[in-house]
Amino acid sequence: MCDNPGGFWVRLGAAILDGILLFIVSALLNFALFQQFVSEPNNITHAIDLLYYLLLPVFWYGYTVGKRALGIRIARVDGRKVGIGTMLMRNFVAGIAYLLTLGIGVIVSAFMVGLREDKRSIHDFIAGTYVTYDKPE
């Protein structure tokens, strides 16, 4: 449980890499469909983000491209495989919690990842997950 946890900086780096990748994919898709680069998020951008953060970790053992590049992944505390329900809890339910706290929950989560020994944030507690350097079994 919570062995070899990934800390704040590596998680931030992975999030930045994921954001860059999603920006490029969304821009290219918008250009292909509308012959222009759309600077504001639209339904296509939201759909790509949804599929990426919800499904990719389920099918790729807890990895996103950014997490894989930096050698970390999402794992369940109970050792089971990350599933759709886990990712829904991690992304949507936690997102609602962060929204209801007007962003204060995001700040608290950042401190939790930076200061806690197990490096778990609010969305990790909600979903029963943690981020680890350990490879999937």
Rank of each mutant, 00 (worst) to 15 (best):
H123S: 12
K135M: 11
V38K: 10
V25R: 08
A110D: 04
M87F: 04
V131S: 13
L56A: 08
G105C: 05
C2D: 13
L12F: 15
V93C: 08
N4H: 11
T86C: 02
N42I: 09
R90K: 12
G95F: 02
S39I: 15
L33C: 05
L70I: 03
A27V: 04
L29T: 10
A94N: 04
L22F: 03
P57L: 03
A27I: 02
F125K: 09
D18S: 09
Y98F: 15
T45H: 14
I122P: 01
Y52A: 09
L50E: 03
L70D: 05
G13H: 06
E40S: 14
Y53D: 08
W9L: 14
A69K: 05
F59K: 00
V25C: 05
L55F: 15
E40W: 06
T101K: 14
Y98G: 06
M1A: 13
R68S: 06
V38F: 01
I44Y: 11
Y53R: 09
F23T: 06
F23M: 12
R11C: 10
W9S: 11
N91W: 01
V58D: 08
L102Y: 14
Y98K: 04
N42A: 09
S121A: 15
V58F: 07
A127R: 03
W60V: 02
G83R: 12
